[in-house]
Design a protein around this nucleic acid. Structure first.
Lengths: 124, 124
DNA sequence: ACCTTGTTCAACCAAAAGGTTGACAAAGCC
DNA sequence: GGCTTTGTCAACCTTTTGGTTGAACAAGGT
């Protein structure tokens, strides 16, 4: 839709592809050239080259030069961006859940069903 | 490409969209109905309905029923899946980086350039 | 200079994503 | 019963994505 979306979108989008996730997994064990990366997959070298481009645009990898080879290196810092985003909302959701639990404790004597949990969540 | 891809692909793919990420952020503060969720965005209710479906298929949200309303609820557990994946490879990459550092320490007297760092990473 | 190896660029294609509008279902309100 | 609210289904359109092939570029090796 938008030509160049925000960082987080590109990172999540890059990792949404299983082939690219697998490549990241392998790069975590050490740098690799394009053909080394391509070896296990049943697709053209060009397709792999494109995948690496996507990872690079997401800031997940960087490429150097070694003669004709273009070694691909995993840049782990971007992971922090994701982790922060995830943790933020997970914590928020968990805190909310705990507040709900506490509320349920306080009114445990009353005959209320789960609908109350949900309603409190939406309103509070 | 594949009709129903693995869980992780669907989760990352779902969060690759900024609108959906925003919806998740808002749901972390409490459940909401479809129209409540749709309100801030300049798109049709149908488009929002589709977004919610994507989040649901990714296991990020679930829907209950309250009269005509379909309250959307954030399921935080799926976040663990992502976090685990991310942490695994980040740690691996960091450990590798530290081993490289240690290696560099041991051979600090020699006149070696960064190429050695890269080569060790690819071969080891 | 020429060949080989490693990688990218360009054009093209099919499928998926994200949006639209129109019709319809489901449940409360008058 | 009929209207209104809330949401989904279906058909359609456009852009993006992930793949293809063929040509080209880059940098040693001989």
């Amino acid at each position: 839709m938008v030509e160049h979306e925000d960082r987080l979108s590109r990172v999540f989008s890059a990792l949404a592809d299983p082939t690219r996730r697998d490549m990241v997994a392998r790069l975590a064990a050490g740098d690799a050239t394009v053909s080394e990366l391509a070896a296990p997959y049943d697709v053209s070298l060009q397709a792999v080259s494109k995948h690496i481009q996507v990872l690079e645009e997401a800031g997940l990898v960087s490429r150097s030069r070694d003669a004709q080879r273009r070694p691909v290196h995993l840049d782990a810092e971007v992971f922090d961006l994701m982790t922060k985003w995830i943790e933020r909302y997970r914590q928020q959701a968990e805190e909310r859940y705990q507040r709900l639990d506490a509320l349920l404790d306080r009114m445990q004597g009353r005959e209320q069903d789960l609908t109350d949990r949900r309603n409190e969540g939406a309103a509070g």
